[in-house]
Design a protein around this nucleic acid. Sequence first.
RNA 1: GCCAGGGUAGCUCAGUGGUAGCAGCGAUCCUCUCAUAAGGGAUAGGCCGAGAGUUCGAUCCUCUCCCCUGGCACCA
Length: 473
Amino acid sequence: MTKFYITAAIPYVNAKPHIGHALEFVQGDVIARYHRLAGDETMYLTGSDENALKNVQAAEKAGQEVRAFCTLHADEFVELAEKLSVQFDVFQRSSSEKHHVSSQELWKLCAKNGDIYKKTYEGLYCVGCEAFYTPDELNKNGECFEHPGKKLEKVGEENYFFKLSSYKEKILQLIESGELEIIPEKQKNEVVRFLQGDVRDISISRSKERAHNWGVEVPGDSTQMMYVWFDALNVYQSGVGFGIDEQKYKKWWPADVHLIGKGIIRFHAVYWPAMLLSAKLPLPKRIYSHGYITVNGQKMSKTLGNVIDPIEIIEKYGVEPVRYYVLREIPTTEDGDISIDRVGEMYSSALANELGNLVSRLAKLCEGSSIAATNVKTFSPAVSQAINRFALRGALDDIWNRISALNKRISDEKVWEKKGDDRLKTLNELVAGVIAVGYDLQPFLPETAKRMLSIFTEKTITQPAPLFPRLSA
RNA sequence: GCCAGGGUAGCUCAGUGGUAGCAGCGAUCCUCUCAUAAGGGAUAGGCCGAGAGUUCGAUCCUCUCCCCUGGCACCA
């Protein structure tokens, strides 16, 4: 039995989840479910990024204690996963004691290898980003791109630095050779271009004061806290026992897939491998990067007030239509758009009319006939291949082509007019087709798939209640 | 500003050096009746962003321009 370990990025918990988080959770869930069904021992992990300064600021704004604030939001992500039928095996909070110990362990390994050094850093500091910039990273007015109009301050501070520059060539080679695979190509190219440029060492700590005394303390220096990404990335390891449970860690690490949003590719494809190389630990095998969701063609933003709460759509249409939408309508590795109306359209056309009605009509046609249930135990090659290439939408395209073909066959052959052996033979073939569809659909729409398989493997097939009832409105 | 990728039917997109696509959704029309008034079929007359060049010939090659999107160190 092979193991399969996939991670979803750990979200900041400074606000409640939006539809973008749902997209990533569901994508990862499909891949995890696929591997579980294929017989792999599977681990699907996510967690929460709680040590970020943003959380401290958000908590202060909300007038709450940081830890309580984080717990509140972390719970919302756990709840979202449940409502989406997303099965995480581990939800690792980065504020947990174990995670702190684990991250300090990683730090020590990098330090032992001589890759961490102290340096007084003087630079231009953007209060909005709470980050330093070099002049060439700024716009022509000398302001950062995130906060145009905001003057930068000159700040000096002694920090720990990580020798990222030492690993530039090695990582470039790993990525170009495909040993560390990045999908899609577009993101891979951006990482390669970055690595071909001037890669500088990065600051990996900040003063405790600047960190508002929140985060993971640097081992052996109680005046410094780890830069949040240093510990955040380590969630992928701490969640499977790194520095805590060696046996467990050895079993799961390295990750087979890191699933992330395109905005954090650099951390996963450059910093993270560098840290692991420094610590002499195995590297993740693949990075899948997905796009962002726009709403009615616009970026989601709190200012615009167009943030879509996935829970709301789930309540309106149900879980599986939401899963279907983000998997089929949103290009797997690119940006896509969502609107409530569009979800409704998809519900009617693809789910109720095509799939739901197919199940209904075929079940009805089968009533009174004894159908020999086929026992499918594997995914179709097309679907397997698509999932392994992170082409989730492609897999659904294939499945829906088959659904259309089944509907067409029923009409073309006027199955309802057939009699005797001819009818029985045709029905058997059609049922086999639907069962195969149901099997392939399991990772995507688990509940629907389960019902389909159960309906058509019964000894006597009877017409079920609609899988996707027509919407009244 | 710099870098990358795009601008093709109402929408989402595919595509090729030689009259643009059996594409999907929506729309319109026709049609079956097993089915959730679902299914199936047909149609939709789009200057393939603008201009110039290369070529016998370009939507696809080159150049310029316009527009959009993405990346530019803490955003799923």
